[in-house]
Amino acid sequence: MAQERKIICILCPNCCELDVSYEGKEILSIENDRCPRGLEYASEELFNPARTLITTVPIKSRNWKTVSVRTTKPVPKSRIFDVYDEVKKIRLRAPINRGDIIIENVLGFGADVIATRTVKE
């Protein structure tokens, strides 16, 4: 049974509003795409949507209360709050370097959670 969906491609400022028809894991047709990247984007969004989680972690430090963190690559969109719950358990102490791995391979998604700022003391 073919299904239809509107997807806004956000890869460039044109932001094409794609009309996509798909069945199972196959795209049947795509309209309003102005470049080939539209198909690639639509396919990811339909069958494998993923997002980078960005949040903060409390830190014991002289001047800072938090350090910002992110996943090194996108994690499944539907599980973003599960990843968040893992990050929420973490407390850190300075010093922390940018890029330090806070959680390795979070929930087995192949992404690490890393610090995005250096906190020296």
Binding site: T56, P58, K60, K89, R91
Partner: peptide, 10 residues
């Protein structure tokens, strides 16, 4: 309160 509990024992 706080966004995230910052007590180390959590």
């Amino acid at each position: 309160g706080k966004v995230k509990d910052d007590r180390e024992e959590g």
